[in-house]
């Protein structure tokens, strides 16, 4: 059962469209008939139990994982096969990983300028200027010349967000960006994300941070067993979940 209600989604201007997407890992059917439209400027939070396919959904959107069947378009363009065209498309889709994945052999500023220089063909000076502005914006300008391992987790994740933003992407994907962080660092990362959302950045965010979902998301998609079981506004989803699986899941994460 796929909920087709799309309350509040301004999908008159869709940026990401997933239609009938299926994905297997060997025998394992990890995405089942996924239909999801993300409007331009919209923030969609994806929640659900571990193993329900949230990361895979995220990774299919920039084709880090190829899909088995169905269709995904970004800004009207179907995802191309692996190659130059796909690289070009990925440059327009920022991605933030749970484990940060900053380039370990490069300084924070070099992490942020690599894509603009090598992909966007900016001059080194332009890239550095853009990079420093972004590092300022996420509050770690003073760490520009440090290596990732010299930063705290929260600082690394903010650097990773700056690295993605430096490409001026149309869309940002976040896969549990705060799950690897100590509690006191979660807020500094969420603050940056809330600011992005407020500015109208289109975002797909896998997270269990309900505060963020309530304050920043237009819609919450609940996944279970590879399906989007329920999709609704945060208010409706958290206060009046429709399906038993969602109720069950919410009772578990709210229990502590």
């Amino acid at each position: 059962m796929v909920a087709d209600a799309r309350p509040d989604s301004d999908s008159h201007d869709p940026l990401v469209v997933m239609e009938g997407v299926n994905k297997h890992f060997g025998e394992l059917h990890v995405l089942r008939d996924i239909d999801l439209t993300v409007g331009r400027g919209e923030v969609v939070v994806v929640i659900g139990p571990s193993g329900s396919g949230k990361s895979t959904l995220c990774r299919c959107i920039n084709r880090l994982e190829p899909i088995g069947s169905g269709r995904i378009t970004i800004d009207g363009v179907a995802l191309p096969e692996e190659g130059k065209g796909l690289a070009k498309l990925r440059a327009d889709v920022g991605m933030v990983f749970q484990s940060f994945n900053l380039f370990a052999h490069k300084t924070v500023l070099q992490n942020v300028t690599l894509g603009p220089i090598k992909v966007r063909k900016l001059s080194k000076d332009e890239a550095r200027e853009r990079g420093m502005k972004l590092l300022q914006r996420v509050g770690i300008a003073e760490k520009a010349d440090r290596y990732p391992a010299e930063l705290s987790g929260g600082q690394q994740q903010r650097a990773a967000i700056a690295r993605a933003l430096a490409m001026e992407p149309k869309l940002m994907l976040f896969d549990e960006p705060t799950s690897a962080l100590d509690p006191e660092m979660i807020k500094e990362v969420l603050d940056v994300m809330v600011e992005l959302a407020t500015e109208g950045t289109t975002m797909v965010v896998v997270t269990h941070e309900m505060g963020f979902a309530r304050s920043a998301a237009q819609r919450v998609a609940f996944m279970d067993g590879g399906r989007i079981v329920e999709i609704a506004t945060p208010q409706r989803f958290f206060d009046h979940p429709e399906t038993d699986r969602a109720k069950d899941f919410l009772s578990k994460i709210l229990a502590h």
């Binding site: 920039n62 190659g83 990925r90 380039f103 894509g115 090598k118 992909v119 990773a160 490409m167």
Partner: peptide, 18 residues
């Protein structure tokens, strides 16, 4: 080298050789 490094590289639009 952790696979996350190559994934992050591809995610910012670098080609495989890059």
């Amino acid at each position: 080298v952790s696979t996350g490094q190559a994934e992050a590289a591809r995610a910012i639009g670098l080609t495989f050789p890059q």
